[in-house]
Design a protein around this nucleic acid. Structure first.
Lengths: 191, 191
DNA sequence: CGCCGAGTTGAACTGAATCAAGAAACGTGG
DNA sequence: CCACGTTTCTTGATTCAGTTCAACTCGGCG
């Protein structure tokens, strides 16, 4: 939980007793390579913080293709906010790319925390805000830049992850076909 | 402020004294058709709730074209969350399409409220969550559906607004060229 | 060794952008 | 209330980025 503690302290001012209450609601869990936390169709009940590892969130579109939505590594939160909050079935799958250890909290425990430890409300607000901002940036980028630029941007931001993720997953994250990504890479390499 | 009060009550459980404190931090303001709240480059200091009217948020992309990001009418919040929270210059312009009356709150007043009235923290969290969810839905829709379907979806959701907004703004909201939207409309009308 | 998933390459195709020109609608001043 | 200029909308021709399809290569792993 070390990573989680650091993360909490970095985000909000928090005293030790509140911290203890918060941590008591989290449980640690490990997943192994190629496992599927196949939450498709299930309502997602947990919010997860990645201490260590690598995984991806994706869904299946109407042409039965996998679309990668998020690639997560240490110090990021993973969760289907939509399903989690509205308690409706999730559209997403989660798939473990490298052995991963997480800390997770159950929805009802989180609700309890909101009542019990008001600072948690603030923490969650800040997290959702961050998520919103980066989603917005990514969206705008996605819509207005050609594939090559999106790929370069991905490398700039996630360069350390790139070699650990199969290319076709990156392609779907960038919303281009695997074939096209291959061509883009070649044409960039020439220079 | 009637609309704002309704809106607050619908979102959270709130007692009269808290409500009074909250409302005291808001100020009412009117804007008139074709006005520009040209906040580009300026750090956005207000968060705004639309009581009545119509406006749009847009930015200028690197080809000097206007991209409409949001179209707002009564009972919606308008604000550049990014700029507002990070206090960095905004990329966006706001442009009044029909006479509009809003209630706005200054950033520092909002921060005060967060301390003073904890329920406000919850309110804002819920708002940002909603915003996140709908941005996510829109993004996925945008990326995976052809222009015609996006247009139909827009009509389904914003049918009442459509006739009040110039077509080229709708086109840029859907991320297609005005010419193409015109063609899409024609081909849909034929059926 | 043989197979299988991942990546590459090229050819044909397609949805949408761009360009250019004209038609319609709109609002402002006389 | 009409005339005029300015926006907005339409239409067709051309071009382009990216997809799809199909065949092929490569690297690992049972």
């Amino acid at each position: 939980m070390k990573k989680l503690i650091e993360h909490l302290k970095k985000t909000i001012d928090i005293n030790d007793s509140d911290l203890e209450i918060i941590l008591s609601k989290f449980q640690s869990k490990s997943f192994y390579k190629n496992e599927e936390i196949t939450s498709f169709g299930k309502t997602s009940k947990y919010f997860r913080f990645i201490n260590h590892g690598l995984l991806r969130v994706y869904f299946i579109d109407n042409q039965a293709k996998e679309i990668t939505v998020q690639i997560g590594t240490e110090n990021t939160w993973i969760g289907d906010i939509h399903s989690f909050l509205t308690q409706t079935p999730s559209q997403y799958h989660i798939n473990i790319l490298e052995d991963t250890s997480i800390s997770q909290i159950h929805k009802t425990d989180l609700e309890t925390l909101f009542q019990q430890v008001p600072i948690m409300e603030r923490f969650f607000r800040l997290k959702v805000q961050r998520a919103y901002i980066s989603l917005q940036e990514r969206t705008l980028h996605q819509l207005n830049k050609p594939a090559a630029q999106r790929y370069l941007e991905f490398k700039r931001k996630y360069g350390h992850i790139e070699p650990r993720v199969p290319q076709y997953m990156i392609a779907s994250y960038l919303n281009i076909s695997p074939e096209h990504l291959s061509k883009v890479r070649r044409s960039l390499a020439k220079k």
